[in-house]
């Protein structure tokens, strides 16, 4: 036996990124824009979708609902009469704490791509792993609820940098908490300077029009080339 050193120099996540690009190409061919929607558990992803998905002017929305198990969130969204596809990571994928490109690929056949303009992929609730795995999306949105504390951007910079929009949720609770909004924004701008952000409350509706407008802009059907 003798020892050999083999030079590789390959990003360990290249395999995922390759599949993500294939997903993206399939979505592009179908004319579907895709948003990867991420947050910690309980930040309000599903509530913020419930507020807008049935009511995006000129945009037909579908949701791919990622959960470790169960279909509670999917059921809530399906009651709004938008097509919802459930993707559970427990049975086939070892209960993974995030969606990756391959899991989304496995669900492609079940997605009504011909009938939608925008697919929102609601990721598994987790502030770490989803930030690492592209799934073939056009844009990434994360929710940070003020109940999580103002230091979260500094603690989870990977996630706060891996998004184009931050929804700061549960702002109706500002008068009742010690949450220091200025400190949160200071941390946010240190980690991801200038990232777009909207203050929202899924409960009172504050900021929801702006969130709806943002999603409508991203999901607007692409004009066919003349």
């Amino acid at each position: 036996m003798h020892r050999t050193k083999v030079k590789i120099v390959e990003e360990a996540l290249d395999a995922n990124n390759t599949i993500a690009r294939a997903n993206r190409a399939d979505f592009d061919r179908a004319g579907v824009r895709v948003v990867n929607f991420m947050s910690a558990p309980g930040a309000g992803k599903t509530s913020l979708l419930e507020r807008v998905v049935a009511d995006l002017p000129g945009v037909r929305v579908g949701v791919l609902e990622g959960d470790v198990q169960g279909s509670m969130d999917a059921d809530r969204l399906a009651s709004l009469h938008v097509p919802v596809t459930q993707l559970n990571t427990a049975p086939s994928f070892g209960g993974e704490c995030h969606l990756d490109a391959n899991m989304v690929r496995s669900a492609l056949g079940e997605l009504p791509l011909d009938d939608i303009d925008l697919l929102v992929i609601e990721n598994v609730g987790n502030l770490v792993c989803p930030a690492e795995f592209r799934v073939g999306e056009d844009a990434r949105v994360m929710v940070s609820a003020i109940t999580e504390g103002e230091e979260k951007p500094a603690k989870y910079p990977l996630m706060f940098r891996a998004c184009e929009l931050v929804l700061i949720n549960k702002v109706d609770l500002l008068p009742h908490l010690d949450f220091d909004l200025d400190k949160f924004l200071y941390h946010l701008d240190a980690v991801h300077p200038g990232v777009e952000r909207i203050m929202v409350s899924a409960k009172t509706g504050e900021g929801i029009d702006e969130w709806r407008a943002w999603l409508t802009r991203v999901g607007a059907p692409v004009e066919a080339p003349v």
Partner: peptide, 25 residues
């Protein structure tokens, strides 16, 4: 300050640089 155009020069890597293996002569 905030007017700067900051990019990551290094620190985002997560790569398998090389492997060492045993093989029959």
């Amino acid at each position: 300050g905030v007017a700067g155009r900051v990019e990551v020069a290094s620190g985002s890597e997560f790569e398998v640089e090389s492997i060492e293996l045993e093989e029959a002569a």
